[in-house]
């Protein structure tokens, strides 16, 4: 039997040693993250340098809430980092986080971007914008999300799946503002205007505009910055302009990335220290800059590149009001066959 005989003891030893590995060192804070660690590493490094507290990370795009819930009071996690209000709400509803307030958090983070019980705090914001072809769409030709339903755009719109959290939140915000019936009509009309079946990611839609498949696309605006930084993709970005929708009325739909303190939090003091640190101006600037997002703390400027895209008015409706309609939004996507 090949070298099984040698492998078994090694295997057992490894299994044994790894189960004993503990995360109980003194000065540290443990993070479950729905965001990619490389986006946060610079800011965690800065925190460690500043405070001497190490930051340990587990990253996954799904299942962390369930893990927290099952690990219960013994969970080693102190903080959960999430993107999208839907996720922030999910951890609150699962009952795995606790409310916390500090003078710093109160002062730095606008009420609109924090939970009333302090169960989550927004750290950065991003706008869901319309990308329009520079060549084929006149400036001002499209000004509102509602305009996407107009017959003149038949066969000219691209988008990713209606089920993607970013689109779900946008549709939920339409329901919150215009009502369910109007939104269903809007979705059906937009579906009729699509150039192709919803597919790919936000960048792929901009690429499709560059290639002439469509003229308009829905996307988060930080992708514009990310594409500019990429050798191949910068040409895609340069073929489009960013339209911040609904400037004449309620404002553009924005979503957040945020953080919550877990119920079990074994390193609570360090965790709160990190939360405060993230809400202060220097950290806000670096953190937002990493992903071409907007700092939530008023008065902190976004990076020069992000600032060059222009200022805009954002939809003032509290995000919790929008999150209420997420399930309904998903059902409307099914009902209208948006993704088919």
């Amino acid at each position: 039997m090949f070298n099984m005989k040698h492998l078994i003891p090694t295997a057992l030893a490894l299994v044994g040693s790894t189960t004993i590995t503990s995360v109980q060192a003194n000065e540290e804070v443990n993070v479950y993250s729905y965001r990619q660690p490389f986006l946060m590493q610079p800011i965690f490094d800065a925190f460690t340098k500043d405070s001497g507290v190490d930051v340990n990370v587990v990253f996954a795009k799904k299942g962390l809430t369930e893990r927290l819930k099952r690990e219960g009071k013994n969970s080693p996690a102190d903080l959960v980092f999430t993107v999208d209000i839907g996720r922030l709400n999910e951890v609150v509803e699962a009952g795995v986080v606790q409310g916390v307030t500090t003078p710093e958090l109160e002062k730095n983070i606008p009420a609109q971007y924090q939970d009333s019980q302090g169960q989550w705090y927004g750290l950065t914001t991003r706008a869901r914008v319309i990308y329009a072809s520079k060549d084929r769409v006149e400036p001002g030709a499209i000004a509102r999300y509602e305009d996407l339903a107009k017959p003149e755009w038949k066969g000219k719109i691209c988008t990713r799946s209606g089920k993607h959290p970013y689109n779900v939140a946008l549709i939920a915000s339409m329901i919150a503002n215009n009502g369910e019936a109007e939104t269903e009509k809007w979705l059906t009309a937009v579906k009729g205007n699509l150039a192709q079946k919803p597919q790919g990611n936000d960048r792929a839609q901009v690429k499709a505009i560059k290639e002439g498949v469509c003229d308009l696309a829905i996307g988060n605006n930080y992708y514009y910055g990310k594409m500019l930084m990429d050798k191949e993709q910068s040409a895609w970005a340069r073929s489009v302009s960013i339209v911040f929708p609904n400037q004449g009325d309620r404002g553009t739909h924005v979503n957040i990335s945020g953080v919550s303190l877990t119920k079990s939090a074994p390193n609570k003091d360090n965790a709160i220290k990190l939360m405060n640190f993230l809400s202060e101006a220097p950290a806000q600037r670096i953190y937002a800059e990493q992903n071409f997002e907007y700092p939530v703390k008023p008065g902190v400027e976004p990076s020069a590149l992000v600032a060059s895209w222009g200022t805009f008015k954002s939809d003032p409706l509290p995000l919790n009001e929008i999150a209420k309609y997420r399930t309904l939004a998903v059902k409307l996507v099914d009902k209208t066959g948006f993704d088919n």
Partner: peptide
């Protein structure tokens, strides 16, 4: 979903980048 803190395999590393497109 199951891994310990600060633990990466090649597949999770690919995913971290790929999931950010």
């Amino acid at each position: 979903i199951l891994r310990p803190f600060n633990f990466e395999t090649l597949a999770t590393h690919v995913y971290q980048l790929a999931s950010d497109e």
